[in-house]
Design a protein around this nucleic acid. Structure first.
Length: 430
RNA sequence: UCCCCGAUAGCUCAAUCGGCAGAGCGGGUGGCUGUUAACCACUAGGUUGUAGGUUCGAGUCCUACUCGGGGAGCCA
């Protein structure tokens, strides 16, 4: 007898199969009992009738606690009354492991309780949908770069110093000295781009900022492409292509997940090229038109980002920020040295910045001056300066935040649900 | 670090003006041959976050603390 999973069940109509999974729910009506079996790929309703199974199995169908592991054998039948269209008429039900009282009920839980039980919360349909969508999203992103000839590289997670010199880092003991958890793979990505041409880093990132918002985690994942001999405009095109690909792929292959998440497809269908591209200075004018007080030279806060993203129904690129509010490695605009060749992509619906990047400073003299201006320690960056000493070339790249992108595409409120085990300022467990 | 809100049964919450601590879900028992977060009946379940204060009387008012949630700054 074949062990079949629910995603392939439609090919087995009329056949007797075995399914292995967990008791997601059960209902009974006297002499007929229903058991919802969750097997990972999906959920299927199993019907237990007293004249089709042993007395023990019929009894078990009533007594088996939620989330117990079971093996079901029975005939696959198409039935409109069953959620999902197919159901199993059970001929045998075996208990693999009886569960203790399951803490997560069918309804009404607070976020704190669910986060304490994250290891079990993952089993719920919404979380399963989110994690499947996350997997589809990272797969699509990597395919997008692979198809274009990008080489995947890994950046170190333990680093000797800060990449950007601004944010707080997690310090760890490293033999007789200190090391820091990386806040970006970018600098290493630049070195790899000089070796391989076009590369991307897909890896974790750590920020010790005491941020408590729906957009922040202390540990999150980025995909960071870096391209030698590329400049800002084509880098923006690449970012636009990536986002469109991710949305297309979601709409094409994740309909069930979007439905489970009750995500409005129409909002995603609007995400087609070209995205609006506005400069920082134009943003200042836009904010003025909207009656939001803002001074040129300040960084955009959450309120400003919300106003900007609400002015458009697709993601919007903001470019040419004042250099002083951007990282030391950003290349200055030749036409206006106050500006950096930077670009951020703001997601619609208030999800904030999902991409940040731009063209890198490729002049040794300029970069040395920036390091000094930012008050950074030069010694640990000598290797980075070498990239400008030995065949420096224009280059550019960006970082895509996986969790924010997923939160936006999935239409969920908080990024903590977009990663299996979120790390937050006040939460390191489970 | 700052601002706001909260903590009552295993879970989600209610409790009027300061006056007998309750409901739904989950658990247990029983019923029901097509249920869809099934339903119906019965049942068990409490040091109201901690410490102090005001009061004849505190879940309710006051102070401190602890924990949690939301937001800001910073950022992806």
């Amino acid at each position: 007898m074949d062990w079949v999973t629910t995603d392939r069940i439609s090919g087995y109509a009329g056949k007797t199969v075995e399914l292995r999974g967990w008791v997601a729910n059960k209902r009974s009506s006297g002499k007929i009992r229903f058991l919802l079996l969750r097997d990972g790929p999906g959920v299927i309703q199993c019907v237990i009738l007293p004249d089709r199974v042993s007395a023990d199995a019929f009894e078990l169908a009533d007594k088996v606690p939620y989330e117990s592991a079971v093996i079901v054998r029975g005939e696959v039948r198409e039935d409109k009354r069953s959620p999902g269209g197919f159901e199993i008429t059970v001929s045998d039900l075996k208990l693999v492991s009886e569960a203790e009282d399951y803490p997560i009920a069918k309804k009404d839980h607070g976020v704190g309780f669910l986060m304490d039980h994250r290891h079990l919360w993952l089993r719920s349909s919404r979380q399963v949908a989110l994690l499947r969508l996350r997997s589809a999203l990272t797969r699509a992103a990597r395919q997008f770069f692979d198809e274009k000839g990008f080489i995947a590289i890994e950046a170190p997670i333990l680093t000797p110093t800060s990449c950007e010199g601004t944010t707080s880092l997690f310090q760890v003991e490293y033999f007789d000295r200190h090391a820091y958890l990386t806040q970006s793979g970018q600098l290493y990505g630049e070195a790899a781009a000089m070796a391989l041409g076009k590369i991307y880093v897909h890896g974790p990132t750590f920020r010790a900022e005491k941020s408590k918002t729906r957009r922040h985690l202390t540990e999150f994942w980025m995909i960071e492409p870096e391209m030698a001999f590329w400049e800002l405009p084509e880098t923006i095109d690449l970012a636009e292509g990536l986002i469109c690909r991710l949305v297309e792929e979601t709409l094409r292959s994740c309909s069930q997940e979007l439905e489970a998440l009750e995500r409005d497809r129409a909002a995603l269908e609007k995400v087609t090229p070209p995205f609006p591209r506005i400069t920082y200075s134009e943003v200042v004018d836009l904010l003025e038109d909207k009656g939001v007080p803002f001074v040129w030279g300040n960084d955009l806060g959450a309120d400003e980002e919300t106003v900007i993203s609400q002015a458009f129904d697709k993601p919007v690129f903001v470019t040419h920020y004042p250099a002083v509010i951007k990282a030391f490695y950003m290349k200055r605009d030749r036409n206006d040295p106050r500006l950096a060749l930077a670009m951020d992509l703001l997601a619609p619906e208030g999800y904030g910045e999902i991409i940040g990047g731009g063209q890198r400073e490729d002049s040794l003299d300029e970069l040395e001056a920036r390091i000094a201006e930012h008050g950074l320690d030069r010694d640990p960056l000598e290797w980075y300066l070498d990239l400008r000493r030995y065949g420096s070339a224009p280059h550019a790249g960006f970082g895509l935040g996986i969790e924010r992108t997923l939160a936006w595409i999935a239409g969920i409120h908080h990024v903590r649900e977009t990663i299996p085990f979120p790390r937050l300022m006040d939460r390191l467990h489970p």
